[in-house]
Design a protein around this nucleic acid. Structure first.
Length: 421
RNA sequence: GUGGCCGUAGCUCAGUCAGGUUAGAGCGCCGCGUUGUGGUCGCGGAUGUCGGGGGUUCGAAUCCCCUCGGUCACCCCA
């Protein structure tokens, strides 16, 4: 007698069950194929890391300052569930020092303690790639195009790409000083939060969506106008590459993104078919200082993350990724106790035929209903007569007027294969 | 973390505003019509502590408070 269940998935988490889980499989499978085809290997990282790994990477960011699942294990070690994928991959790079360029992809959960809503979860899942060890602008292009290709392969068309460059150590400090001076003169025009924090995070103010900040920064200096020669050339090559490959984008000088580690190229994909505010389906950028930050040798890097849940919502909104219902080829109906179903189903499966059966000695009628609903094309039926004569009845369930034939038990697999061919 | 809305069978929902006999529908599920045959059709059946807890009342799905969950916006981002 069911009553209110004592437990449910924690707030902001969710179960993925069949048939929805098949879409996950398909999505990850497509991505794995695309990444593999481009020379990326799978990386699997721990779901928690030393707390310091993430603190080092984003001490000025909301994600790290107020959204982390941080805890101590029984040995008193400070740990945290990963809030994003890049830090773990970079930590693994520093630890193992693979030869470069190191091109990897992952599909893994991330954890952020936020107020849940549609498309925003406390445990969500990301597909991502990282490339470590190359400053080549063509890597930036490869990474961005890879994400775009995934959307295309899935049939998600209504996607916009925002592109920006954050500069590097040579030009960013000067720009930030310029921006800081600009903001200092109009602190009182900013929103409440940034009136306090504009000094420490001037770039954040550009990203603020509040109208006060928007208006106050309308005439602010743009990073893109202050790139040094090297960053400007790099950015130009990135844009040329995207143009050559037919990937459209919009320059977005306000695109700052949520992590401190970005340098040069940053980008964000939004699904415009999504109604809600949570329409960013992927984003990333270059992080040429991050490996050193985590104790490795100077090594440039770039990567992106794509939110699986949001991407699936975008698929829904566009009617993409509609999968046919999963079916087996054959359903084994056994009215004589179950042993025949047990043996025949495995004979078929061992021969590569997808087969299923009922349990619990259901009535013949009930088993036939299940056979029908399963979508199987054939029913293998064993009743008392077949049992006695060492045969089975093979019935066609899809069309052919339910044509039925009697087949010797040792010829079942061969005949089934013929009929399915 | 802040604010608005919502929470009735497995699913989608009616009933809540004006508290009152055993809480309903459709779909799905199970069984039977056919003790050896599915799809259609017909008949029958099961399942709800009306999210949870407390309160008001003779009486609460319905009113009040708290809480949990969802959702929308802010914020942030995938």
């Amino acid at each position: 007698m069911p009553s209110a269940p004592p437990f449910r998935a924690p707030s902001g988490t969710h179960d993925v069950l069949p048939p929805e889980s098949a879409r996950w499989q398909a999505l990850v499978g497509r991505f794995a194929a695309l990444a593999g085809q481009a020379g990326y290997g799978l990386v699997v990282n721990p779901v928690f890391e030393d707390l310091g790994v993430f603190q080092r990477v984003g001490e000025g960011t909301d994600v790290v300052r107020k959204e982390m699942y941080a805890f101590e294990d029984r040995g008193g070690r400070p740990l945290a569930l990963r809030p994003e994928g890049t830090a773990s991959v970079v930590r693994a790079y520093v630890q193992h020092r693979p030869t470069t360029p190191w091109k990897v992809w992952y599909a893994a959960p991330s954890f952020r303690y936020e107020r849940p809503q549609a498309g925003r979860y406390r445990q969500h899942h990301q597909l991502g790639v990282e490339v470590l060890g190359s400053v080549d602008a063509d890597v930036d292009v490869e990474v961005v195009v890879l994400a775009a290709e995934l959307f295309g392969a899935l049939g998600v068309r209504r996607v916009t790409l925002a592109l920006n460059s954050m500069g590097d150590d040579a030009c960013r400090p000067g720009y930030v000083a310029l921006l800081g001076a600009f903001l200092d003169e109009r602190t009182d025009q900013l929103c409440a939060e940034h009136r306090q924090r504009a000094g420490e995070q001037p770039l954040r103010v550009l990203d603020c969506k509040r109208t006060e900040c928007r208006e106050a920064t309308a005439g602010a200096p743009r990073m893109l106008d202050h790139l040094c020669t090297a960053c400007d050339a790099h950015f130009r090559r990135v844009r040329d590459g995207l143009d050559a490959l037919g990937i459209g984008y919009q320059l977005e000088s306000r695109l700052v993104r949520g992590f401190d580690y970005y340098t040069r190229t940053t980008f964000e994909f939004a699904a415009t078919a999504l109604e809600g505010a949570q329409n960013a389906i992927g984003g990333g950028g270059r992080y040429d200082g991050l490996v050193e930050e985590l104790g490795g040798p100077p090594t440039p890097g770039i990567g992106f993350g794509i939110g699986i849940e949001r991407l699936l919502l975008a698929c829904d909104a566009e009617g993409a990724l509609r999968l046919p219902e999963a079916t087996v080829d054959v359903w084994v109906v056994d009215a004589v106790g179950g042993a025949a179903a047990r043996d025949l189903s495995w004979s078929l499966r061992r021969a590569g035929v997808a087969a299923d059966r009922a349990f619990d000695e259901r009535s013949l009628r009930a088993q036939m209903k299940l056979a029908d609903r399963s979508g199987a094309r054939l029913a293998v039926i064993v009743g008392a007569d077949e049992q006695a004569s060492g045969t089975v009845s093979l019935r066609q369930l899809r069309g052919n007027d339910g044509a039925q034939e009697l087949v010797a038990r040792d010829r079942v697999v061969a005949r089934v294969r013929e009929l399915l061919a």
